[in-house]
């Protein structure tokens, strides 16, 4: 492994924290792969060896797991993973067009990264926000009800180094590495940040109130 002493010490501490959450240590593997991505920006050969060593697995066993899941990247990922949902509902509502225009605008295709290392584009499958179609995700934060122009603006701002806020979620989109650390189970203190609840989430409550329903009434 080529990690320096400080990095390795931190990784070992973090890995011990993750392992302590489970009765059987192999369960720590998925969060540990997120942890590796938070340091290396992808599942690196070093990271695979690190996980194997900590969990008494072979490198082949770790690789077999890492290659199964789409969130684990096999080569250095962009700072921002930008996914346009092209599953049926979003595609029909305009996701296909958003993808076409965005991909043309940025000049890269599916699973490709811009030369500046900022943005990796992905043709996304359903991200459980169909009532907000068409949906785009940036580092797994919600960008709801997108248009080709809004999507291009987001990507331009990200590439220009500006802070970008999702439509639902925290005050700003964090980097791929930062978000990977959260997914490894390390709190970044942003849970109480909020961009407001979207209209579709509240559509039923609003309609119920129009019917005379009141909260608290059984």
């Amino acid at each position: 492994m080529t990690y320096d002493e400080t990095t390795l010490a931190q990784l070992r501490d973090d890995a011990a924290d993750i392992v302590s959450r489970y009765p059987v240590k192999r369960s720590a593997l998925l969060p540990m792969l997120h942890l590796v991505q938070s340091v290396d920006g992808f599942v690196s050969p070093d990271g695979i060896r690190f996980c194997a060593e900590r969990l008494d697995l072979s490198a082949a066993e770790v690789s077999a797991v890492a290659t199964f899941y789409t969130q684990y990247k096999r080569r250095p990922n962009g700072e921002y993973q930008v996914g346009v949902c092209v599953n049926t509902l979003c595609a029909v509502m305009g996701g296909d067009r958003i993808w076409d225009e965005l991909s043309e605008h940025v000049g890269v295709g599916n699973d490709e990264t811009t030369a500046d290392g900022k943005v990796t584009l992905e043709r996304l499958e359903c991200n459980a926000a169909c009532d907000y179609a068409p949906v785009m995700m940036v580092n797994w934060e919600f960008f709801d009800n997108q248009t080709p122009d809004s999507a291009k603006q987001v990507v331009d701002d990200l590439r220009a180094g500006k802070d970008v806020a999702p439509t639902r979620g925290p005050a700003k989109v964090c980097t791929f590495k930062e978000v990977s650390r959260v997914l490894a189970g390390f709190d970044d203190g942003r849970a109480n940040e909020d961009q407001g609840v979207g209209a579709p989430t509240l559509a039923g409550v609003k309609a119920a109130k129009a019917q005379g329903w009141k909260e608290g009434k059984k």
């Binding site: 169909c130 179609a133 209209a199 559509a203």
Partner: peptide
Amino acid sequence: SGHVERPGQYE
């Protein structure tokens, strides 16, 4: 979801 005026969660 889809081609409705007000998509969303209706309990």
